[in-house]
Design a protein around this nucleic acid. Structure first.
Lengths: 337, 337
DNA sequence: CTGAAAGCGCTAACAC
DNA sequence: GTGTTAGCGCTTTCAG
């Protein structure tokens, strides 16, 4: 027997479709008796409303889209999980799309999702021309951007405060006695990257430490390879650093690998710190000092803000900075002398 | 201006809705001229078909559901990613639900997804009463189970060949000179676990190595904690093992931690091997010997089989075993003597 | 080759 | 309180 429809229920109970609908959505104007009978039979036959039909009628699907860079990145996975949880809690289901580096992927994903009738979209992918986003926003289509800050501050953007994170890292390194602090960062065309470079410069200046431009290396991705490649370069330099600030944990892993291979020890010879605090960083054999932020909070804010927009409210906060937290582990070393 | 509908296109082009529909779905009986004109204007105004409406009509949503245990588990994330890719390639979008240990979660997820009109569901969660699955299958609702083998072989089940994996591990350990091989496994009520225990016993027997029941410990989850707790017990025993087969990588990480803390070295004092080959296992500071399987293949088969069912075909293969592969790294040690 | 009409399952006026 | 009607956007007979 196939799934019963509302109409089937109507026939079975002898009421009209409208009454059945009212009973199921606890509408005010309905007799207790009718309601009970209908709900009872609905339960008995295992009736489930067809959201597709409802969606068509109501122009609301209770579906949201989530566009994510790379699910396999433990950091993105964490966000995703929290968003899933939060959305489910709010009664929404989530269509996910992982775009990797495909620039066109995001646009395509947005189109596909809209065709599927999602009520709103959360974008965490790093690359997207602002123009296509502006189109959405102009259309008043609910969108939240997570983990990215665009030049033009279009729409709702939720990001951890990267500058503050870097500042904490640099300050901590200086305080415990490191002097020559290098930085390996991400591509310069990402605001995330730039923010971190700037915060690094500023933190040094505030502490009256001269900036050595040779110690600042810019990779073309937040990746293990970047860390590996540029740390090699750092080690070959005349004046080696005694600490390296990496713009994210993956870069830090790459850097650590080079240092290990060179037979140097971390943190005694060179300290290494990362950013994002991914799962692996906590592993006893790694123990990377890093900066973490409250994923759950991030996800909650994103979902909440999206639902506000879906419900027709104007989002109160458009630019939200989440204060991150320093996680001190072994790779940064302890107080020297 | 809001999104144009098919009706709008009809008005703009002067054709009827039916003709527009035919033009857009390249139906045979339509004049080239009409088709061109319609497609042209559709492009111009950025027409996108409303899949919700189409779904209602066609009883097909081009949505599939994916139920996964824990997205943050790098291993599950890998499967998810491949499934996403594959589904997208086939023109389907994916609704994801992460259930963690909630037994009820899976059932609820199935219901929610069906309400949303998914055309089929891939289930990778570990816990689910068979009965609710049987209901689906009796209803002929397309389902594929990934990574799990049920007692009653209901429906399509795709799993890596765990027995073969364990056999490779044990045989390898024996070949390179280990003698007292312990095993830390998962809960006994999971077929995945049982298969691995049995394979362990069998591999020992085949090699004429006596089984020492004290060396077989059964945890209640595939987790770091399990490894940590039971490896502690192993080390306290009179006759310590010289190798430990862990039923998955997480357990292995826990075990390694205990061995590290005890000041023993891996693999010189005790070898450790895992199963699943998660990301972290390849890390230079870890280098866990493990067993891996082709996620991409797994995902492809799952999606393909699901789509076959959706298209009304009877799946050719119902029980599919994927042959895994041994990944030898440092923690198992090398040939002794 | 094209149009008119019906209907997928549901909800919201509007009557009674 | 309840039923009737209409319609969301689309596809698909069935006529012409």
């Amino acid at each position: 027997m196939k799934r019963p429809t509302l109409k089937d229920l109507a026939e079975m109970t002898g009421f009209s479709a409208a009454t059945v609908s009212r009973a199921l959505n606890d509408h005010p104007r309905i007799s207790r008796k009718a309601k009970n009978r209908i709900i009872e039979t609905a339960r008995k036959v295992g009736y489930q409303p067809n959201l597709i039909a409802r969606g068509l009628r109501e122009k609301k699907s209770y579906l949201i889209g989530l566009i994510i860079y790379d699910l396999q990145n433990s950091f993105h996975a964490a966000v995703t999980r929290s968003i899933l949880e939060e959305a489910q809690y709010e009664g929404y289901q989530v269509i996910i799309r992982s775009t990797m580096d495909h620039a066109s992927g995001v646009i395509e994903a947005i189109e596909d999702m809209r065709r599927a009738g999602v009520d709103g979209i959360i974008i965490t992918a790093t690359r997207l021309e602002e123009s296509s986003l502006e189109d959405l926003i102009k259309e008043q289509f609910p969108v939240v951007q997570l983990m990215r800050r665009l030049e033009k501050n279009t729409g709702v953007q939720i990001v951890p405060d990267g500058a503050y994170g870097i500042q904490m890292l640099v300050t901590h390194l200086l305080r415990i006695g490191h002097q020559k602090i290098a930085m390996i960062g991400g591509p310069d065309d990402l605001s995330t990257s730039r923010t971190r470079y700037e915060a690094y410069y500023q933190a040094l200046q505030e502490n009256n430490v001269p900036v050595d431009r040779n110690l600042v290396l810019k990779g073309c991705a937040f990746s293990y390879e970047t860390g590996y490649k540029f740390c090699k370069i750092l080690l070959r330099q005349v004046s080696k650093p005694d600490a390296i600030v990496c713009a994210d944990d993956l870069i830090a892993f790459g850097a650590m690998q080079v240092i290990d291979e060179a037979g140097l020890s971390i943190p005694e010879d060179i300290a290494v710190v990362g950013f994002d605090d991914c799962d692996m960083s906590a592993h006893p054999r790694i123990q990377l000092t890093s900066v973490k932020y409250d994923m759950k909070l991030l996800a909650q804010l994103a979902v909440k803000s999206l639902l506000e927009q879906i419900d027709g409210l104007i989002p109160v906060h458009k630019l939200i900075d989440i204060v991150p937290q320093l996680v001190v582990r072994k790779t940064c070393g302890y107080l020297k002398g």
